[in-house]
Every structure is written in C-alpha cells, then in structure tokens.
C-alpha cells in the first residue's frame, strides 16, 4: 500500500501512542498543524484501509499479573486446522492464534497460540481444556513457556508486537 505524505506524518505522530489528555486527537492535530477533524478523518481512513487494525491499549502482561505465558504449537492436518483454531481462539486465555509454515525437518508445527495465565499450572490446565474442547488433545504439540523477556519495545510504525 502506498501511503501519502500526510499519512506518514500522522503515523509518525502516533508512534508513541495518543497523548493522555482529554482531547488527544486535538493535541495530535496541534503537533501536526492539523485540525482535530483532519486527524480523526486521517485515522478513520487508516482503519478503513486496514493499516490500523485496532485502536486501544497495549498492556504489559507481566505487569498485569500474568506471570506465565506459553506459546503452544500444534502439528495439525491441513483439513483440521481451521476448525480447531477457531475453537482455540475463542477461549479467553488464548490471546493469539496463527497458522505459520512448517519448516521440516527442523520444525513440524503449523498452528501457534499464545496462552497467558497467572501461573504455569493454570496455563497447563488451560492447554488441556482447550485442546480437549478443540478435539486435538491427541495431536502432536509443544508448550514453550517464556523464561525471560529480553526486549519488548512498543511497535513503531512498521512494526507490531503481535507478529
């Protein structure tokens, strides 16, 4: 997608998020030399074009008390994957659910879910419950708990935490 110069300027102004004031779009407009209406129109257009997927808050799981997070990966037959993924994705503890390519022979898994929980036992219990609900409890899987977060920076434009 080719962005206009104005769109680039707007994305750059939004890179650190909205100013935390009562009228944040007006404040962004002041920074850009635009009217508040122009800022709102510009953002709505970016949402319509799919450049902005969502507008909300980015929370830090660890600071919220979600001490455990696991990437749970599955090796599912192609004709089973979508139905199972939809069931997994609908569960509140599952925050992301993506299909990614296998890289054989090194990496056999093609469905990736992120499961957050307050501790490891709860994450593992959720893995059991979710895979049973999705009918994939017997399929090959691996649970990769995170040990340490080395780097987590707010996605600038060009980047997005949920890759």
């Amino acid at each position: 997608m080719d962005l206009t110069g104005e769109q680039h300027a707007l994305l750059a102004a939004l890179a650190d998020g909205l100013p935390l004031v009562a009228e944040p779009y007006a404040a962004l407009g002041q920074r850009l030399g635009w009217s508040e209406a122009a800022v709102l129109d510009g953002i709505r257009t970016l949402v319509e074009e799919g450049v902005i997927k969502r507008f909300g808050v980015v929370v830090r799981h660890h600071e919220l008390g979600y001490r455990a997070n696991a990437m749970v990966v599955f090796d599912l037959p192609d004709d089973e994957l979508q139905a199972a993924a939809r069931i997994l994705a609908a569960r509140p503890a599952v925050t992301l659910c993506y299909r990614r390519p296998r890289r054989l022979p090194r990496w056999p898994y093609n469905l990736f879910c992120m499961i957050h929980g307050r501790d490891r036992a709860r994450v593992l219990a959720e893995v059991e419950a979710a895979t049973t609900a999705a009918g994939i409890a017997q399929r090959p899987r691996a649970v990769l708990f995170s040990k340490r977060r080395f780097k987590q920076q707010a996605a600038r434009y060009g980047g997005e935490a949920a890759a």
Binding site: M1, D2, L14, L46, K53, V58, E63, G158, E160
Partner: peptide
C-alpha cells in the same frame, strides 16, 4: 507504572508495506 505500554493504534505491518515475521 508501565502496566500500559501505549494507548493508541495497533498496525498491520504488511498493509503498511513492511515485512514482519516470527
């Protein structure tokens, strides 16, 4: 307190014309 890292947009990097992978 750094509970919130940001209030604002989540982008689709691919729609932005960029590359993204895990």
């Amino acid at each position: 307190l750094r509970v919130l890292s940001r209030v604002g947009p989540m982008y689709d990097a691919v729609r932005l014309g960029g590359g993204l992978t895990l």
